[in-house]
Nucleic acid binder design. Structure first.
Lengths: 218, 218
DNA sequence: TTCCATCAAAATCTCGAAATTTAGGCGAAT
DNA sequence: ATTCGCCTAAATTTCGAGATTTTGATGGAA
């Protein structure tokens, strides 16, 4: 793994989790010192990240983290539904036992984590683990779709989605509903029911579309 | 427009049309001389292009244009159908008169060009114009979808698709069928029939999925 | 107080060169 | 004739400096 790529991955991960505030400026100069490399190297990496939308570039004004936007979360959720539903349907057709095994394994990990979350006093130490497990489950869903282009596209959308969502305090408020929905997706997929699986994926992601409605009355 | 961005757009355009051969190495050193800038600047641009898949980066071995792959064309076509059908359906719901006007205009331009193509002796001078007009028509279809994220994603997929397809000798073999299909898409969209529009978009792009079957018997 | 010009500090942007790595040719040994 | 290792040329990667631009603060005028 090259130097460039290391920094690229490190920054991408930080941008997807909680390393930066929305709208905050990304100071290439500071990162240069932190990573101990030249400004050009940082600049390269930031340009790469700007191409997929994880940072915004403005001429002569450097890079900054995109503002959080309810509208953008909607758009990215919509794309996720589109890509994940299609990718999962393709996986059901092409997948086979190996895929079913991977999916069951991913769900088991996630499920196990969510169970522990329900009874935990302090959810903080689980946050990173849960996000990883959730990502793993959703990526496994589409992993047998046979289209690298679809997986790549989904990955980009997913990164931006995760960045927009960041860590919400209410992340685990609906954990029991999450457990139920993940189980339903798994069941439908294992039963080979494409239509039902699409439907359940839509339902699962739709909560991000509902957020506005929830808040309106408050 | 910044220097960086100029070079980015120039190279992207060249990669999408016929500036490079598939699999050919992209020599940063040569481009540096051609564009009269430093190696770092070229490198930045190439990294950006690699993030969306227009060039491939291999550590210590520079950048190269992706190989042409029938499978990849299939995958990108599939994504185009997914994104364009959805985006157009949204445009039908949200778009209004302004969008209908834009779409009619784009189709008129394309249609006019295709008519001239049919009767032209030498199609070569029309190629670039036609590709631009076709892109314009398809981008206009989704232009009122209300989702920047969908438009951005479609743009990336479209760039890669165009690069994979490049200029085929047979580009205009089916020009009369193209005219008919574009007209059908326009009619369905103007009639506000989402389902029919989706269907016609699928039919129109499906010819890229059929290419294998066509060639198999030969 | 508010607005605007000026100036200094900090950040961005581009470049050319040095260090590192790959690519390809040449000749010797099997 | 083929293979292997060496050597040179060419390409890459990284860096730090200098030029340019933005940012933020200070001070004077309305």
């Amino acid at each position: 793994m090259s130097y460039d790529t290391d920094i690229y991955n490190a920054l991408r991960h930080r941008l997807m989790t909680n390393g930066f505030e929305h709208g905050q400026k990304v100071r290439a100069e500071h990162l240069r010192i932190e990573f101990g490399c030249s400004a050009s190297t940082i600049r390269e990496v930031l340009f790469r990240l700007s191409t997929i939308g994880l940072v915004e570039f403005r001429e002569q004004r450097g890079f900054r983290v995109p503002e959080q936007s309810r509208a953008l979360i909607h758009e990215l959720t919509h794309l996720r539904v589109l890509l994940e539903a299609e990718g999962t349907a393709m996986s059901i057709r092409r997948g086979g036992v190996a895929w079913e095994a991977r999916l069951t394994a991913a769900h088991h990990q996630l499920s196990h984590l969510e169970m522990r979350l329900q009874s935990a006093q302090d959810t903080a130490p689980f946050i990173d683990l849960w996000f990883d497990a959730e990502r793993q489950f959703h990526e496994t869903l589409i992993s047998a779709c046979g289209s690298d282009a679809l997986r790549d596209t989904h990955h980009q959308v997913y990164c931006r989605f995760r960045q927009q969502l960041m860590i919400e305090d209410r992340a685990f408020d609906f954990i029991s509903e999450n457990i139920r929905q993940h189980q339903q997706i798994l069941d439908a997929a294992m039963a080979g029911d494409e239509a039902l699986t699409r439907h359940k994926i839509h339902d699962h992601l739709a909560r991000h579309l509902m957020a506005d409605v929830e808040r309106e009355p408050a």
